[in-house]
Structure formats: C-alpha cells, structure tokens
Design a protein around this nucleic acid. Structure first.
Lengths: 231, 231
DNA sequence: ACGGGGATGTGGACGGCGTCAACATCGAGG
DNA sequence: CCTCGATGTTGACGCCGTCCACATCCCCGT
C-alpha cells in the first residue's frame, strides 16, 4: 500500500530502481513520489508535469506513458493524500479511552474532529489535493457499513452511530448529523488554511476549535453539566 | 459602486464608452466586466488575461496598464464578488421579522446562514473568487463595531450579538461563536460546491442544511420546545 | 494656438505549460 | 534470435503570463 511515508522516506521499499539506462524502471512510482513532494510544498496548483519529469531526470512526456493527463496524476496523488487523512483519523480514534461508554463516544467524536483539523493545518497541500478529486457521494451520506473506517466520512458515521448507541444522541437527530459535523470541521479547516482566518494566532485558533467542537457536542446532548472531561 | 448587476446588465451606466479608435476609453471597467462573466462561468482558475483582452477586443497586454498582474485583476473581481455576497446577506437580514425578540434574533441567524449557502451554491464562481483573496483577519474575529454589516463576518457578529442581547445566547458562550457558525456554513458550502457532496440531490442537500442550522441554534439556546417557527 | 509629455494601447519576444505525433530503445516471449 | 509491445525521447503546436520597445492620443501649460 502506498502511503505518504513510503514516498517521503527512502524509496528503496518501492522495488528495484534502475535509474541508469534508457528505461527508468520505476517511473510511475518515482513520479508519484515527486508529485507528493511538490503538492506538499505548493499545493495541487503548483504541480507541473514537466517539472516533475525534470526532477525525476526523465524527459517531458515520459509521464504520459503512466498517466493519461495531468488530472490523472493529480487524482493519484489525491488518493494517497486521502489515505493519509483517513489513517490519521484511524490512529487518533484508536487512542481514545474512557470508562463511561457515553463519554467514550463523545470523546471519540471530539478527537476525530480534532484530528481532521490537525491534518488539514499540518499538511495543507495534501489536504487540498485530497479534496480536489474526492470520490463523489450520491446516495444518503449517513448510510455506511457498521464499523467502517476506510474514509473520513465512514469514520464520522461510525462515530456518530456510536453516539446513538451510547444513548447520547437521539436517533431522530442522527440523520444529517454527519453533514453538520463534517461541514463544521471542514469549514474550520478551509477558513484557516487558505481563507480569511489564515493569519489568526495559533492559540486563538486552537481555542476556537475547542469551542466549536464543544458546541457540536453540546448541540447533540442534553448535558448541561461539566464539559471539562471532553478535552 | 460596482456590483455584479452593474457588469452583467447594460454597461452604459459605467460612463462614456468610446470603443472606436486607438484608445478604448473605459478599458478597466470593460475588463472587469468580462472577468466577472468568466469567473461566474468557470471560476477563478478559468480566468486568463489574454482571453479577456481578446473578448474585449483589445490587444493582449493592454490589461497591464490597469492591473499590475493577473493576481491584481483577480483581486478586483474578488472585491466585487465579496460585495455581492455581503449584499445578499444584508438583503436577507432585512426581510426577517418576528414579534418575539428572541425568535427574531434566532431567525436572523438562521436566515443569514441560509443566504450564505444559497449564494455559494447559486454563484459558485463568485463565491470561490471572493475567498481566493479575502482580506486577512488578524485580530480577534469576534470584535466588530456594533451594527456593522459591511462584510459577512461583520454581519455574523452583529447577528450573534443580537442573540446575546435577546438573552438566548449566554454571554460566556459568545466568544468564538462566530467562528463556529462561519465554519459550519462555509464548510457546508465548500463540500457541496466542489467537494464530495457535489452530486447530492437538491432535496437532501436542503434538508441537511436546515438540520445543520437547527443544530447550531439548538447548541446555543436552552430551548427544548418547538423548533418549527425557525423555518 | 500649439506643442510636449504622460497616459494608454500595440507588437514582438521569452520562457513555461499541457498535449499530440513520430521516432527510438529496450526486454520478454515465441 | 527475432519480433513486438511497453517505455522513453524529440519536436511541434497553441495556450499562458510577463517584460520591453514603440505608437498613438489627449490634456495642460505656455
């Protein structure tokens, strides 16, 4: 499985790379690796096929033996970036623990949101490219195989279902909740990433994020008590 | 004041246009007008200075007598687009009425959010360009002159302050609320505009929006009663 | 009245880009 | 061993943004 670390660290893992000679030997992976670097540094728009070829030490046009056009290359990068975002969420969810099942479910949602924003702000290029060609969702976005976590939406849905099972989120409030939550964390990310809130000091930003996640939590539960165990 | 309609409808308003002869007479406005059309149709990335010049019937390069570079032109378009978004919010706010001051304040927030998303989905190109060069906010985003409505954030702040005055939003919950609300509507817009939810059927989208706005309202108030007067 | 100068528009050039077509080179399988 | 498909190269085309030198025009001060 291709991952960000696969590309950014040593590429020996990727198999025999015979850079010498007429044929490159592993051009597709080399291009993807270079593309990932470029996107991390400059975002999707800063990606030029010719530039990539130059960096890899191959002539322009060679890339077109492996990718139909520039968009296809960007889409390949997007797939890797999306996998990285998904993995970040998965890892974060795995760290959440609590004795009380209600608090466990609430903290899972909280941490999932935090990991989403953290990834977006920490890897702006990857985050942007991931959404530049995200697989379209056409059916009801709330329906998902129980326990699925193979993309950010699935993770969110599973987490929200957990909130219902725990009795914190009313079943009739469940439909559409995934869009509400996703919109909030996504909007927060975009506004701070490339939008008007880019220049906001980090401590303000973090405080605002916590406040937003608490708002979401509070909007779902009937709790009026202490919120401190949330963070 | 330049507005979208100024450009899209008859441009006679813009003053004497002597298209004949060596000098255009009103090139700057003509370029802006053409740029606005292009951005509406294809978004900010589809804007090419040479193409604009061609459409206006002037040589390439002529544009550079009025705009330092492409970015400056995009920024000029962004200013108009932002004004249009602001005006949409202002107009919508003006229509909200209610006897109960609490309900009035709540409905104002609800409608402001709805108008934001409606503009984004109805004018995707303009919405995108408006945020491609939005004036950076560096201070606390919640501080604003009372009653100000000259940009979307000011409108939101004023509306939230009204919610506090009405006694619906607790004063200690006010700081950061503008970021929470803005994130939600902005994220909703982006996800449906160019993101994964682009292909979602319109009725699902609308239902999800209402549910999100209700969530925001419910997260702020202590109300558990009937929500139907909200929409 | 007139002439000069700043503002505005033109034409050409450069380098970069994505992409297509023709050609070159390699390596695997008959 | 030889061929053929996969892979890489070279060259060309038409876009793009931008810099430069030059042309044209209009207004302002004399």
């Amino acid at each position: 499985m291709l991952s960000v670390s696969t590309f950014t660290s040593d590429s020996a893992i990727l198999g025999r790379v015979t850079t010498t000679g007429y044929h490159h030997g592993n051009l597709r992976e080399a291009l993807l690796s270079a593309a990932l670097v470029a996107v991390r540094e400059q975002g999707p728009d800063g990606l030029a096929v010719r530039d990539l070829a130059r960096r890899v030490g191959v002539s322009h046009n060679a890339a077109y033996r492996h990718f139909a056009d520039r968009d296809a290359l960007v889409a390949a990068v997007a797939e890797v970036a999306l996998a990285a975002l998904t993995e970040a969420g998965r890892r974060r969810l795995a760290t959440v623990e609590h004795d009380d099942p209600v608090m466990l479910a609430r903290r899972r949602l909280f941490e999932l949101g935090r990991s989403y924003v953290t990834f977006a702000l920490g890897e702006p290029g990857l985050f942007r490219v991931a959404f530049s060609s995200y697989p379209q969702i056409e059916t009801a976005p709330g329906l998902v195989d129980p326990g699925a976590d193979d993309d950010p939406l699935a993770q969110l849905n599973t987490t929200l279902d957990g909130l219902v099972e725990a009795g914190y989120l009313a079943p009739q409030a469940r439909p559409g909740a995934e869009i509400t939550c996703w919109s909030a964390v996504h909007g927060f990310s975009v506004l701070h990433l490339e939008g008007p809130l880019l220049a906001l000091p980090a401590e303000m930003r973090d405080a605002a994020l916590v406040q937003m996640l608490v708002s979401i939590d509070r909007g779902y539960g009937a709790t009026t008590g202490d919120l401190s165990p949330l963070f």
